[in-house]
Amino acid sequence: MSEHDHHHHDHDHSELSETELRVRALESILTEKGYVEAAALDAIVQAYETKIGPHNGARVVAKAWTDPAFKKALLEDASKAVGTLGHVSRVGDHLVAIENTPGRHNMVVCTLCSCYPWEMLGLPPVWYKASPYRSRAVKDPRGVLADFGVSLPKETEIRVWDSTAETRFLVLPMRPAGTEGWSEEQLADLVTRDSMIGTGFPKTPGAPS
């Protein structure tokens, strides 16, 4: 066993599951063959844990709420528009921002696997990758929203975007009422991950978080 393995895995666990053993074995094989540097695997995990997350998407949404020119650019070409914000995580091609309006609510799913805008929202939550959401979102989106405690007026159009290619979708939720004059930073705190997937709304100003 390498130094690396000692460092990372030998905590207090005296017994390892079959899966853990299998993962360790594969990691040993790949590093021993010289395919990957063990330290590079650590660095990947660390990068996911620290660099990406819904805070990136929240800043984009807050900017769109306060800057009409940015909002227009975002809806036209989200990759390009987000690329102009130096402080936000770098973004790949084919990011598409879709705007919620009083008449239309957008919701994103990947029925075939788990496609998700990682650079904007981080790694997807388990429910997004699991069978109940993937199976029902396209057929019964109102039922799925009810599972999240979300209900929409019955006449609101629900548009479900199934991420079947390398396009990635970011929902631009509606700006909450009562936030006139708020700064981008204040607004970003209201933007939830689920509001950018379309399974939730931004937080309401003044409500307990």
Partner: peptide, 21 residues
Amino acid sequence: VHDMGGMDGFGKVEPEPNEPM
């Protein structure tokens, strides 16, 4: 079975509060 769109029977969506990465 990965092609799940429209299948029934998988039950409710269960979000986990404060889910770890």
